[in-house]
């Protein structure tokens, strides 16, 4: 199972990349844990997770081919 990850703003600075593929992650909580091990700075970050363009809340199940966006607080305008 493949998931496409997109990182924006300060999150992309922390991860050092803005787009990559990961495998064998089933849900957003598992993804967060996985990322926080790789990038400990994320633990103290506030960010929203969108799956296939919709912002999720709680632990959201991922399906093969999903696009998951890691979004820090917005600062447009």
């Amino acid at each position: 199972m493949k998931i496409k990850i997109l990182a924006f703003g300060i999150i992309a600075d922390i991860t050092g990349k803005s787009e990559w593929i990961i495998e064998n992650i089933q849900a957003t909580d598992e993804l967060k844990k996985h990322l926080e091990i790789l990038y400990p700075r994320l633990k103290s970050m506030k960010y929203a997770i969108a799956v296939n363009l919709a912002i999720t809340s709680g632990n959201f199940e991922l399906t093969d081919g999903a696009t998951v966006a890691l979004m820090p607080p917005f600062s447009g305008g």
Binding site: F8, G9, I10, F74, S75
Partner: peptide, 27 residues
């Protein structure tokens, strides 16, 4: 419209200083 854009549009601003260092903007 302006209020909703500020709160809900997934846009990020990086504030760049004279020496090209930067911080991420907060609304």
């Amino acid at each position: 419209i302006v209020n909703r854009i500020k709160e809900e549009a997934p846009v990020w601003g990086k504030e760049i200083f004279e020496d090209e260092s930067y911080i991420w903007k907060q609304n």
